[in-house]
Design a protein around this nucleic acid. Structure first.
Lengths: 251, 251
DNA sequence: GATCCGTTCTATGTATACATTAGGCGTTCC
DNA sequence: GGAACGCCTAATGTATACATAGAACGGATC
């Protein structure tokens, strides 16, 4: 982590620090960022600070204000839901196109290997599930899925969509402490992983798309659970702290 | 147009000029842009040139190179197809969500008014079709559609997707000179506009989505027509000049 | 002859002084 | 008293000098 903070350039340091503060909720949504104040605060000159803000705008964490300058983007609860929905739609499209266009044998073997590795994580006794490994393999699965249709355009947009921390496929994976409660949902998700790959291999585009969309709904369910039952968990999901806490639409 | 070139700030001038050169194909895809050379060429200092490049990266026309600097993004024929597909998928999602969540009476009335106005353009004698008006109303329809589900997230991403000139819903509208040849396709498109709105009003989410996706396929057909039959038209579609001319995948 | 190290050059990274503009606040005139 | 004009200030916009890092080339040594 210190490696990041001690990144090569001042721009990178500013980028990492700002991103951290925004995701922490330390800088609330809607805040206007003033170059001079920020530069002063970060002990970095205006130029790299501007550059960092520009990159954060590309990431979607900031938006450009009308007369220059940047605002911290604010995310309402509904926005998080929509972001998850969007990710599901894009991943569904990746699955459908992979099926329709035909994925390469090699790529199919690779994603199948990931699924088998995930099987190893899920099938055993709940207490033995290796959270870190599962989370990593899950990310790998979703990256491999995005690459299957060999569409640079789609892969790029999907990467963009997954960039917001609460839209990442691994964002709502159960915390270690809650893992056993979620064991059933992990098994369901894993069954979906398996069938998505099967559908793609069999060129069942529509089924692959539907399965993948449904798969994304798990994230939605976990989000709803967190906000309606166990608000303490908000702090365990990266970036969820920046979701407007006073949102009237919160359940 | 001169208003743009004489934009307020140097950044804007650089932005407009660079965008123009890229869309013209004057700067081919893959070209690395050097700050100093560009600044010298545009008679603007490095700072606003950098800022302009940064914004073009947000737009998707440039990409950041590994060790700093920017490359002009190169679009193969397949990328254009995928971009259209992506726009169709996102618009389809907008239509489905509008149907599922229910669009407001007011918004439905507004989009219906646009459809009626379009009827006025299409229904008459081919020679009387007002190209400018049709094109403008068509854009309005697609903007209204994007706004129907009242999802800031989706509307934002859709705006992004439509930003690339060849992904815009009006990109492949028939040129004035070819208008009569395309009259039938205009009528089909207009029928789709009507039924998309009907499906949304009746809360038929799946139908609305399918219709909207199909509607985007018209752009794909026009693109294929241009590249396989009438290459001269390439210059009539904004931004199509930047598509890699030596693409082996071209039909 | 090949490899490794150093130098140099060229590109971006950074700081900062100065320019400019837009928006707020006050004053003045009607 | 209200509106309009103008100034002032605080923000971004711009230019530029200087720093630095990475790649390429050359020389020297093994």
């Amino acid at each position: 982590m210190d490696r990041q903070t001690t990144a090569k350039t001042h721009t990178m340091r500013a980028l990492v620090e700002l991103r951290k503060r925004i995701l922490d909720g330390a800088i609330p949504g809607g805040t206007r960022l003033f170059e001079v104040a920020l530069a002063d605060d970060l002990q970095i000159s205006r130029t790299p600070v501007r550059e960092a803000m520009s990159r954060l705008a590309e990431e979607g964490l900031l938006e450009r204000a009308r007369n220059g300058g940047f605002l911290v983007r604010s995310f309402a609860y509904a926005d998080v839901l929509d972001t998850i929905e969007l990710r599901g739609v894009l991943e569904g499209t990746a699955a459908r196109l992979a099926a329709e266009r035909g994925a390469s044998e090699k790529a199919l073997k690779e994603i199948s290997a990931i699924v088998r590795a995930l099987d190893g994580c899920v099938g055993v006794h709940p207490d033995e599930v290796d959270f870190e490994t599962y989370s990593e393999l899950n990310s790998e699965f979703h990256d491999a899925l995005a690459a299957l249709p060999r569409s640079a355009t789609l892969e790029r947009e999907l990467a963009r969509a997954k960039q917001l921390p609460f839209a990442s496929p691994s964002a709502f994976l159960p915390d270690k402490t809650k893992l056993s409660d979620f064991r059933r949902s992990l098994q369901v998700a894993q069954e979906q992983h398996r069938e998505i790959v099967t559908a793609i291999a069999r060129r069942q585009g529509s089924r692959a798309e539907a399965l993948t969309r449904e798969h994304a709904c798990a994230a939605r369910r976990n989000l709803e659970y967190i906000f309606s039952r166990d608000r303490n968990l908000v702090s365990t999901v990266p970036g969820l702290a920046l979701v407007a806490p006073n949102d009237p639409a919160l359940p």
